[in-house]
Design a protein around this nucleic acid. Structure first.
Length: 440
RNA sequence: GCGCAGGUGGCGGAGUGGUCAAUCGCAACUGACUGUAAAUCAGUCGCCCUAUGGGCUACGUAGGUUCAAAUCCUACCCUGCGCA
């Protein structure tokens, strides 16, 4: 197997655990926050800045890199990690999220996490919006995407997604799935789930095929050019790379429904071809904020304990505590970088809108006890000024802080599990974070 | 001094007799953002109130015409350009 997961310590009476995930490009201490670099770049940050912020692993996107610059070209440039000068562990998402974001959610402002009071949940029957403009259209065999870049049409099947991901060359890749909209009704969720399961099997089959035939010429190229991170070369780099094959994560769907979630967890965790199953699991799809916790528990009680679990696209601090407590090992989220670019900064006292007038001229750092590059060198007033002036550095400095904040929050939570004081840490963090946030 | 053009909400700039408290852009303010079509998007933006309604003050200043004026007339003040 291409990755190895070991559990170091478990939370008493809970699903939560701290562990180590060994990959061909280094060890990830879990739970871990995966930083999103969709187009092989964490937006506004150099790879060195990403690393300095404490990032252990980066996730890129199949669909985006397939369109630009093209997966063959990425392969030619030495693969995702080599191309972006990231020597550490990498992941790629399958494009399954784009089935949602460019399909049902296209131009509708629907987010993957919603409140149970959201009006879109009140619609009793699935309304027919097949005429609505969308860039992704779902068929049984795959999804046709209209490129947002040039309008060209691309048909992505599970096989194609896996082929692309093998070319991109990440350590961990995902099965092609359908991320459903939270506003879909149960009947649709069930149909979509059947589709996702069929696609999971096809993804697994293609993955096994590619791994076995795997003349990974990419690896030969990689061997010639040393990685920039020392930890990679430390233990027989050539051998590591020679035997390198990506690990495949299957994705559990099922929307908000208990029966579907549990069914999906069972089907995906038991799925195998010739004795070969998934190396890890993703928990995907839509949740109502209020019942995300129960959905994650339903799933993680069923998924095999010895394999890593990744909660896709989730990253609010309260959700990280929830997920970790319920047995999630990996999270990825665009929140630190997107919010950073849009002027919202994470702090222990809640979110800070740095453009607010009160921060003009404020010479203090974002957080006085923060160890990030931004806080050690720049003031709130300066960052506020950069935002008001629409300077590029604003997004960079803010993203550095936010990435550092969330990555290190998860590291601290991990440490609290090892130290046996998870519950205390959770309560003290959240009471301060939420209380102050509410006051604002 | 003469000629021409023009003075509109923080700024730029529409409007040229009623549907104008005044299009729009910028700035400002507030809020969103959860496997990134996002350095994006949405809302507010004269004052006051017993606010899906009502009142008041406003389009350089002062008068005037009219049922009705940012819009027409007169005078004055100011700005820009041109000519002396």
């Amino acid at each position: 197997m291409s990755i190895k997961f070991t559990i170091e310590k478990k939370l008493d009476g809970k699903l939560g655990r701290a562990g180590m995930l060994e990959t061909p490009h280094g060890v990830i201490e879990t739970p871990a926050f995966v930083v999103v670099g969709t187009k092989a770049t964490v937006k506004s940050l150099s790879t060195e800045q990403v690393k300095e912020a404490g990032t252990q692993v980066v996730l890129a996107n199949t669909y985006h890199l397939y369109l630009q610059p093209g997966d063959e070209l990425v392969k030619k440039m030495g693969g995702l990690g080599k191309m972006m000068n990231w020597g550490g562990p990498t992941m790629t998402d399958s494009g399954g999220f784009q089935v949602f974001s460019l399909g049902a959610a296209y131009k509708k402002g629907i987010s993957k996490v919603i409140q149970v009071t959201d009006p879109s949940l009140m619609i009793p029957e699935r309304f027919d919006d097949s005429d609505a403009p969308r860039l992704a259209k779902i068929g049984q065999d795959g999804v046709s995407f209209t490129s947002h870049l040039d309008g060209s049409v691309h048909y992505i099947t599970p096989e194609k997604s896996i082929q692309i991901q093998h070319n991109l060359g990440a350590d961990m890749i995902f099965a092609f799935d359908e991320c459903t909209s939270p506003s879909e009704d149960l009947k649709y969720q069930e149909e979509a789930l059947e589709r996702t399961h069929a696609w999971a099997l096809r993804s697994l089959s293609e993955h096994i095929k590619l791994n076995e035939s795997g003349k990974r010429s990419l690896l030969e190229e990689e061997r010639l050019v040393p990685r920039s991170f020392s930890e990679v070369g430390s233990d027989g780099k050539g051998e590591t790379l020679r035997s390198f094959q990506p690990a495949l994560f299957g994705i559990v769907q099922g929307g908000r429904d208990e029966r579907l979630r549990k069914k999906s967890a069972k089907v995906i965790s038991e799925m195998e071809i010739d004795g070969k199953g998934f190396d890890g699991f993703g928990i995907g799809g839509s949740f109502a904020k209020e019942d995300m916790s129960t959905a994650v528990k339903w799933v993680n009680e069923i998924l095999p304990e010895e394999k890593p679990r990744h909660l896709l696209g989730i990253g609010e601090p309260e959700d990280l505590f929830m997920g970790i407590e319920s047995g999630v090992d990996l999270f990825d989220c665009v929140l630190p970088t997107r919010n950073g670019r849009n002027g919202t900064l994470f702090t222990k006292d809640g979110k800070m809108h740095i453009e607010k007038s009160e921060f003009r001229g404020d010479v203090r750092p974002i957080e006085n006890d923060c160890e990030c590059y931004t806080c050690k060198n720049y003031s709130r007033g300066y960052i506020a000024h950069l935002f008001h002036g629409k300077e590029m550095l604003a997004g960079t400095l803010s993203s550095i802080h936010n990435v550092h904040f969330l990555v290190n929050l998860v590291k601290k939570i991990r440490q609290s599990i090892l130290d046996g004081n998870f519950q205390e840490y959770k309560e003290s963090f959240l009471s301060r974070y939420k209380l102050t946030n509410k006051d604002k």
